[in-house]
Amino acid sequence: MVEEEDDAPMAEDRGRFPRSVFEEGEDPDPRFSLANERTFLAWIRTGLAFVAAGLAVEALQLPVTEWLRVTISVLLVLAGIAATAQAWLSWVRTERAMRHLAPLPSSGLKLPIAVLLGLVALAVVVGLLL
């Protein structure tokens, strides 16, 4: 009876969402999972900030040529979409790595996000000089 109760959560674990994370490995120290959750939320906030910045560029009519302003706005919102994707992607990959005691993953979408922000900075400089 007691054994059954001990085994039940294990069986349930295997069906936990998302399967790609929980079907294998050992549960890590819950503190590590909580840290991973906070990193996820930091990426979500970063994405929301990019989206807000992209909308602000349009709403406040940043004083640059129209096509450049739209470009800046679109690039920022795209960075927001990428950051949101990065939030979920890196949460899944980190949680999976922790369950296998594997090295934590790096990069993900960080490079595309950095490139987008570099282009935004460039476009702002060009726009202000034009």
């Binding site: 294990m10 994370v21 890590p28 999972s33 939320l41």
Partner: peptide, 16 residues
């Protein structure tokens, strides 16, 4: 750590 509450995956998925 095996407590399913350790990871709020459905909540995180919903938020993302």
């Amino acid at each position: 750590g095996r407590d399913p509450r350790a990871v709020a995956a459905p909540t995180l998925a919903r938020t993302a």
